[in-house]
Design a protein around this nucleic acid. Structure first.
Lengths: 162, 162
DNA sequence: TAAAAACCCATAAAATCCCATTGTATCCCG
DNA sequence: CGGGATACAATGGGATTTTATGGGTTTTTA
């Protein structure tokens, strides 16, 4: 693994009527330092009711890792099936979207539903990747530490006042 | 290995009365970034009841890979036979079709039957290649993860409403 | 010459681009 | 160090371009 630049920080942005959202500038700057792409890949998170997001550099690493796993166990038919399934999840079940010169993506409807994202999108850096949450779902999730919920509450208040 | 651009995402497109289908633009853009061709190669998938599809750049890689395998085990007569068989499958059992300026191919009847494709074609990116499914067969396939079936269902709904 | 294949045109919906506005953080200079 | 000036981030709205798809017409080919 070993990606040099890591995603960190949080932000709460609006999703407009066309489904557009600004990717926070501090996340974009990490993407652009990792590579020269201006796209993000969206996937349903495996554990939480939110989306997982990352850049092409991370996607490439993930793919290489899968390939290595396969070659190690090439002759095992069960390994072959598992490889097929993982590959489908990694690529078919994800969507790559470019962001424009003002840093916005338009949310693919499928991902918006997968992540149950409404009019507000909470961005959370998690190192190699970042997450996008419906802030209310994060507050409702018992597996999320209270301190993190406080951050979400703060971001909500911040927005409520302005 | 190491193809720089990977096939990713999903789409459900109509097959019209003449057997024509649009190749989703996001898949075409990968093909055209990998090389300057505007064709795809179709084959029956080895494990699933669907078609496997790729571009000329990948076909070249696949051929090189087979060659390498053969050289490694040159003195083994069984390896020689396996090479002949794989080679036949990789080249004789496939069809290469060009797509036109609007991004459509006409489905070769043999492949349409091999993949049991009806009036709808579900495209699934799988990294180095992509798959084309009859969406109903995917929903019926027990080896396919439920999350992926959800995507197929979403694509079907999306189309049903319009 | 009839069936099939390739080509061309048309169109509605969706995706993309472009410009405008506003609020906020940063800079600069006296 | 204060106060404006500047730059950038986030967002709204309209205009333009692509995409997916249907249908007709010409050109092969057998």
């Amino acid at each position: 693994m070993a990606l040099e630049h890591l995603f960190q920080g949080s932000a709460l942005n609006a999703v407009d009527a066309k489904g557009r959202v600004s990717i926070p500038a501090f996340l974009r700057s990490v993407i652009e330092r990792r590579g020269d792409a201006r796209t993000i890949t969206l996937a349903k998170h495996e554990a939480f009711p939110c989306l997982s997001a990352y850049d092409p550099a991370y996607a490439g690493l993930k793919h290489a890792k899968l390939e290595r796993l396969l070659e190690k166990e090439e002759t095992n038919p069960e390994a072959e099936l598992e490889y097929q399934q993982r590959n489908l999840m990694a690529f078919a079940a994800t969507e790559e979207v470019p962001y424009d010169s003002s840093g916005r993506i338009v949310f693919p409807p499928m991902m918006r539903r997968n992540g149950q994202i409404g009019e507000l999108a909470l961005f959370l850096g998690t190192g190699e990747t970042f997450q996008i949450w419906n802030p209310q779902l994060l507050l409702d999730e018992k597996r999320i530490p209270e301190d993190l919920k406080d951050i979400a509450r703060f971001r909500l208040e911040e927005r409520g006042q302005s």
